[in-house]
Design a protein around this nucleic acid. Structure first.
Length: 496
RNA sequence: GCCCCUGUCGUCUAGCUUGGUUGAGGACACCGCCCUUUCAAGGCGGCAACACGGGUUCAAAUCCCGUCGGGGGCGCCA
């Protein structure tokens, strides 16, 4: 059987949007699933909107997401070049072929003129289709006109009537009335190929067997099929993915919040989670398991099972998936992922010793189950780094002012010394002693301790909190962590 | 305006091809309970949908027609 070849062909006009990333992902999954080839092609024929920095960014974001291509602008390959801007000759050559065969013709209509025709058509209720005004021009006359410097586009001569049907891998048979498909521009008057022509030439020359792209290309497809036929190129299979929408059911855009892959990265979303989420947007595995890594996704993926209707991007579910993925990553990796966010906030130092890493690893390990994404870690980290009894909640403060509370805290101070480092066993022993001596137990015993230690009535389990604080205190972090004894001491003083 | 795609819980979806196994299943979110002397996590449970109207049929979420809703396209943008 012929080897499957698919491509992702973005135009480098900005940062990569999750909708496009999803298209890339489905292509990639399909390629890997079928042991085929995945190609990255840059569609930069619109000179005004393309920029080199965008291409670099695009490549970086795609790689971060975990999508690797077998052939592309930076990796090379046998069917290159992989930038449309470097393939000009190829388009000219194919266009010339069509001109020679009388299947294409020069069009001298100005954009203004065409725009006027279009408006008139819509106003009078007719379909907005190119009139075919220039298709009757004698080729010799047209050539002369071009040679004397008249700007001309090249258009494909289409039948203008009849029906065209093709079978979409996701949607089944799709039919179009060719009377509504005007003669498309192949080469623009500035010499650059038009999108609809460039894709056909590129996809054929690159040996693409399956064109998997967004639903917004459905109505381009008949035009492209006509072009394939005019060129006597074999037809690939087509599959059109539905769109990704925002919560208000309009096309996902900036005003919906984060939409660029890079924004999710900066927010501390794991690439494996975004990858997983995107795959689940419009596709579901057979047995309903949802937390999946790339390998499992490849195993289960089936293009025919992709949903036909548009899907709304659900930030809640992404967060949930991110939590699931955070749980599975090794603690070293979690610490590494959290570190930049903490450093940014001045909570971790530039230079990290072995000891600090080891501590961070444990700290992140307990904080990670309280957050959705790594950008939230500095706020949780305040449990350690921030301690100001004076800012305590009023009700909590009243609780501490009770005589029994004070007694607990005073006993704690009496029984510990400045230079002693507590571990949890020692802490437990201490609380037992306090209990014996004071007769205070249960909530009356633990609640004041928690308040005095954390400044807050809720938070980490004390058995996790205490050793981390005690060891963190000797780490000399930019924002120093206070020891348990110091915390209780300060709380007591602040009560007066 | 014209053409095309699409319509199952608030959201992502399973089921639809091959009508009865569906009192329509799962997941996120939400609510409740349990666990926990806190919070979160976790466990258990609950709320919640076949857009509407006609057919066909003994039987329709599943097949047909129409209406309505949503989306896309009609570019010398991609």
């Amino acid at each position: 059987m012929e080897k499957i070849r698919v491509r992702f062909a973005p135009s480098p006009t900005g940062y990569i949007h999750v909708g496009n990333a999803r298209t890339a992902l489905f292509n990639w999954l399909f390629a890997r699933k079928n042991r085929g080839v995945f190609i990255l092609r840059i569609e930069d024929t619109d000179i005004e909107r393309s920029a080199e920095t965008y291409e670099k960014k695009l490549i970086e974001d795609l790689r971060w997401l975990g999508i690797e291509w077998d052939e592309g602008p930076d990796t090379g390959g046998a069917r290159g070049p992989y930038r449309q801007s470097e393939r000009g000759d190829l388009y000219q050559e194919q266009a010339q072929k069509l001109m020679n065969g009388g299947k294409a013709y020069y069009c001298f209509c100005s954009p203004d003129e065409l725009e006027r025709e279009r408006r008139d058509a819509v106003a009078s209720g007719r379909p907005a289709v190119y009139s075919g005004k220039c298709r009757g021009l004698a080729p010799e006359d047209a050539r002369k006109k071009v040679e004397t410097g008249n700007p001309a586009a090249v258009r494909l001569r289409t039948p203008g009537r009849g029906m065209l049907t093709y079978n979409d891998l996701i949607r089944g048979p799709l039919s179009f009335d060719l009377a509504l498909t005007g003669d498309p521009v192949l080469i623009r008057s500035n010499g650059m190929p038009a999108y609809n022509f460039a894709v056909v030439v590129d996809d054929t020359l690159m040996g693409i067997t399956h064109v998997i792209r967004g639903e917004d290309h459905i109505s381009n497809t008949p035009r492209q099929i006509l072009t394939y036929e005019a060129l006597s190129f074999p037809l690939p299979s087509f599959a059109h993915l539905s769109m990704v929408m925002g919560p208000d059911n309009t096309r996902l855009s900036k005003r919906h919040g984060a939409t660029a892959v890079d924004q999710f990265r900066q927010d501390g979303i794991l690439s494996s989670a975004l990858f997983n989420y995107l795959a689940l947007l419009g596709w579901a595995p057979p047995d309903g398991e949802e937390v999946l890594d790339a390998g499992r996704l490849i195993e289960l993926f089936r293009l025919e099972k992709v949903s036909r209707s548009a899907a709304i991007f659900d930030y809640d579910k992404l967060n949930w998936l991110n939590r699931q993925h955070m749980k599975t990553i090794p603690s070293k990796e979690a610490a590494r992922a959290a570190y930049p966010f903490l450093k940014e906030e001045g909570l971790m130092p530039e230079n990290m010793t072995e000891e600090r890493w080891e501590w961070l690893e444990r700290a992140v390990g307990v904080l990670i189950e309280r957050i959705n994404r790594f950008s939230e870690i500095p706020a949780e980290f305040e449990l350690f780094s921030k301690f100001s009894p004076s800012e305590m909640d009023h009700a909590d403060r009243e609780d501490l002012k009770m005589e029994s509370s004070r007694k607990v805290l005073r006993l704690f101070i009496e029984k510990t010394s400045e230079d002693e480092k507590l571990d949890f066993d020692r802490f437990s022993a201490l609380t037992q002693e306090i209990k014996q001596e004071s007769g205070i137990k249960g909530k009356d015993l633990y609640h004041p301790l928690r308040l005095a230690l954390t400044g807050c009535s809720s938070g980490l389990d004390l058995d996790k909190f205490i050793p981390l604080v005690e060891e963190g205190a000797s780490l000399h972090l930019p924002k120093s962590i206070k020891s348990c004894r110091q915390r209780i001491f300060e709380t007591l003083n602040n009560l007066e």
